[in-house]
Design a protein around this nucleic acid. Structure first.
Lengths: 354, 354
DNA sequence: TTGAAAGCGATACCAC
DNA sequence: GTGGTATCGCTTTCAA
């Protein structure tokens, strides 16, 4: 991106430009004010060409004084870069999209790139309208994101004139796709339960046909033993209750460590255990998945859980589209980003070394 | 907005443009392909000027065939309209912002307007960077939204060269500000409890210094009686527990109807009641506020609650910035939008007439 | 070292 | 009816 003049860097909180916020001042006005030609102004501000250092400085000063900011539309028309990207999502609750979005925005704002948010529900027509609108506006790239890694958005993103990066949703074969490493996350969780001294582990999770569920289950079994029980249900609190119900009604041995497929299930499990007089974490350790702050922190006791680093994933996605937009080469393929363990109280061992 | 040719309307899912998605075709290419001049093409597509009906039709057909879509940057440069607006928010969890955003987007997508989402946390510097970036990109307007009606965003939005609408956050004196009608919502809730035959009402809510809390409390007292107890605490589940604790430990009479300031508190209350052997809704009716789906639906029993119609609020905000951007006159001031009651099971009376 | 002029893609006015 | 031309705000040769 352009250097030297008003970039997106946060340090330059010039108070001066505030003053003239109400009016749009063009490079023409600035040229007149500085008594030079527009081309000189342009070069001065962009640190291009050769020119007297003091002329350059003077122009920059006057630019700041009168609050000049170049028109990005005009700039984009010429450069074929709009410094704009589009974020397509079908995640209505934003549980996954928001952190991703925050990461993207954070990574790109300092590069002067803004993000169009397009919520397309699961409506192909709506998706097309949004994609077309973004292309019309000459976005430099598109990030597609969803709530499920094994489903794709209801829009055809192949052969667009701009690069597309997929985050947390299924991408085209030869595209860049980012996802969190479910197996890694599940290993972290299982491992932590074992480190807490738990022997009888159970995994209570979502539907088997979710790839993320089955990958986590596989990783769980790899550590906990191939016949450690895995219970598939739905991704809801109620399923946590039901699962505990089943286990406690059954004749099998009762677990002392439970790895839940998400924080909602974990909350249901924790509540159900408490209602049965079991103490968490004294009698049973419970670990969740997602680190959905508002759920994990409100559970009694607060949930130890796995964080998928969605914000980092967003940052990575942002930087990758940016690279792609700038013509840099990026190796296509699926990238799995590591998860991290967040220790609260539902497993015990808060101050133990990991 | 422009009529006749490729507008944002969803019906025209032209399969043809799909074909040429990979290339950007300019009006020049199209003119050449049609054997006419660019000005003729422009008039044909925009239904301007007088011209042979068949020429117009032919040009439109060819345009669709080769997948021509006008460059919005060029268009915007000339018209001073970018068909883009900015949404500024400091609501990190998106609980309030997401529905508002969905409403805005839904209202505007058919007008060809896209939305920049700018999450500024509570960082003034970051806010300024985002505002400047949006202004550079010539947004037609800005919607500022937050999580609290009585606090403003940490950015100075006065005297911007574009219209600003405030939604769910405090606005400049002479601006348009939208908010939900807290008093109305509280009345709906209190009224519903009374309709359920409840006599001993209590209001458990957030901090008194939140205007929304105090307005709701006032409305509550107006219906429930001026000495109906109002308990101020924090907006969290834990406070629901604590409040019930206080009441049950105290010597005062116990309520049979509880109006909670939000769904989290309501959930805490419902849980706490259940733990004390009280049945909801048989013994006590509990009503929440926010209709935060994932919380309200997962509570046992599912919460009857007040919906602030945030999506409608977003739609209204979108249409208002649009009007303002088009130079139409909009009366400034604070507009309170009505709430609605959402009946689930925590109050009883699900099938009773409202 | 500086400035004039062409051009990015589209629209609108005014000739023809 | 149709097409040339100026224009929007900016960048970039190329002359001076």
């Amino acid at each position: 991106m352009r250097k030297g003049f008003l970039t997106g860097h946060r340090e330059e909180g010039s108070l001066i430009t505030q003053r003239n916020r109400g009016v749009r001042v063009t490079i023409h006005d600035l040229a007149k004010a500085a008594g030079v030609s527009v081309s000189t102004v342009s070069k001065a501000l962009n640190d291009n060409g050769r020119m007297a250092a003091d002329t350059r400085a003077r122009i920059k000063r006057i630019a700041a004084e009168i609050g000049f900011r170049p028109n990005a539309l005009a700039r984009g028309l010429l450069s074929n870069r709009s410094f704009t990207i589009g974020l397509l999502t079908n995640d209505t609750y934003g549980r996954f999209t928001l952190p991703v979005m925050a990461g993207i925005s954070e990574a790109l704002v300092d590069h002067g790139v803004s993000v169009f948010l397009c919520a397309i529900e699961d409506d192909p027509a709506l998706g097309k309208v949004h994609v077309d609108a973004m292309l019309d506006k000459q976005v430099d790239g598109i990030i597609a994101t969803g709530k499920r890694v094994d489903r794709s958005l209801p829009v055809d993103l192949s052969s667009l004139p701009v690069p597309v990066v997929y985050a947390f949703t299924q991408g085209e074969p030869d595209s860049v796709t980012l996802t969190s490493d479910d197996a890694h996350g599940a290993s972290l969780a299982t491992d932590w339960l074992m480190k807490m001294g738990r022997k009888r582990l159970v995994h209570i999770t979502g539907p088997e046909d979710f790839v993320s569920a089955s990958e986590r289950a596989d990783a769980f079994r790899k550590l906990a033993g191939s016949n450690a029980p895995v219970m598939h249900g739905i991704w809801a609190e109620g399923w946590g209750h039901d699962a505990i119900d089943q286990i406690w009604k059954g004749s099998g041995e009762r677990p002392d460590g439970i790895f839940c497929g998400n924080d909602q299930i974990a909350r249901g499990v924790a509540d159900a255990l408490r209602e049965r007089g079991m103490k968490v974490p004294e009698d049973v350790s419970v670990i969740g998945f997602d680190n959905w702050e508002i759920m994990a922190a409100q559970t009694r006791p607060p949930l130890t859980t796995i964080d998928m680093n969605l914000k980092e994933l967003g940052k990575a996605a942002g930087l990758i589209v940016l690279a792609l937009a700038e013509g840099r080469v990026v190796e296509p393929g699926l990238r799995r980003l590591p998860c991290k363990l967040v220790v609260r109280q539902s497993c015990g061992g808060g101050n133990q070394k990991i």
